[in-house]
């Protein structure tokens, strides 16, 4: 296990060095990423300055959701980039190369690329989050701070799990990847706003199928000190980050099924 962590760090180092071969490109992509997400948030801000609140949610509270989702997504995009672009590897036959090396497939795929330019999104989301926590007017107890970190981690695992599922699907069909993409990017968009504003079917999707709301919205309620209009038990608000990790572990099981399919069909 320690050995795997060490190798992962080596992979990250190598990938970062490879990206730094083109420093100008890296700087521009990062700034671009920062600018795009900043404009996105400016739009949310404009909406709230016009309408005030959204079903009892003020801007700082929505900003909390926004920051949490986007930090989690940025971390997952950077760290699980290998799974995100995996369909190219499969099509090019590069998965064979992974199979003839004496390491786990997950470690090798995740080690393929650590996409550093996602710090653009990360930095922007972090700024929003820091502002949100300051503007909320809620005392950030140790418990709440821990929950905040834990649920961002949970969200990161959840998005990483989605990338793994997307990669797994490409063992069967590259054409249907867009469906997972819709869930991933749709999840980010939807997660920026309080779950209670959506229709029940949509809510249930993000609570039970892809439990993004469970790892993001529910803990955000606890951190912002709001009562849940949907009436979920309070303990769930504190237990929910674990669900992201569970989702990720389950996606790894599905991945193994995909690998078995590949090694029996060779395509």
């Amino acid at each position: 296990m320690m050995d795997a962590v060490r190798l992962y760090c080596r992979y990250v180092g190598v990938s970062v060095r490879a990206q730094m071969q083109y420093p100008a490109s890296f700087v521009m992509m990062t700034i671009g990423m920062f600018a795009v997400t900043a404009v996105e948030f400016a739009w949310v801000w404009a909406l709230f300055s016009r309408f005030g609140t959204l079903q009892g949610w003020a801007l700082p509270e929505v900003a909390l959701l926004y920051g949490m989702v986007h930090i989690a997504f940025a971390v997952a995009e950077a760290a699980a980039r290998g799974f995100d672009i995996f369909h190219r590897q499969v099509r090019g036959g590069d998965f064979d190369r992974i199979l003839v090396r004496p390491r786990s497939t997950v470690l090798q795929v995740i080690g393929m690329e650590f996409q550093l330019m996602r710090v653009g999104r990360l930095a922007q989301a972090l700024l929003v989050l820091v502002w949100a926590v300051a503007a909320l007017g809620v005392r950030l107890t140790l418990g709440r701070a821990l929950l905040l970190v834990a649920s961002i981690l949970g969200g990161g695992f959840l998005f990483a799990g989605l990338f793994v599922l997307q990669a797994t699907l490409s063992f069967w069909s590259v054409e249907s990847l867009e469906m997972v993409n819709m869930a991933t990017y749709g999840g980010v968009e939807a997660g920026q706003f309080p779950l209670s504003i959506y229709r029940p079917s949509f809510r249930n999707f993000f609570l039970f199928v892809i439990p993004l709301a469970t790892v993001n919205y529910l803990p955000a309620l606890a951190i912002a000190g709001k009562t849940d209009p949907l009436g979920f038990p309070v303990w769930l608000q504190w237990a929910s980050p674990l669900i992201g990790i569970l989702f990720f572990l389950m996606s790894l099981l599905v991945w193994q099924v995909g690998v078995r399919h590949y090694t029996s069909t060779g395509s």
């Binding site: 050995d3 190798l7 080596r10 490879a18 071969q21 004496p102």
Partner: peptide, 18 residues
């Protein structure tokens, strides 16, 4: 590794193969 000096690939393979 396409973008890296050859010796970096060798070093990484050393770690992959222990």
């Amino acid at each position: 590794w396409w973008d890296l000096p050859v010796v970096d690939s060798f070093d990484l393979l050393r770690d992959i193969y222990r």
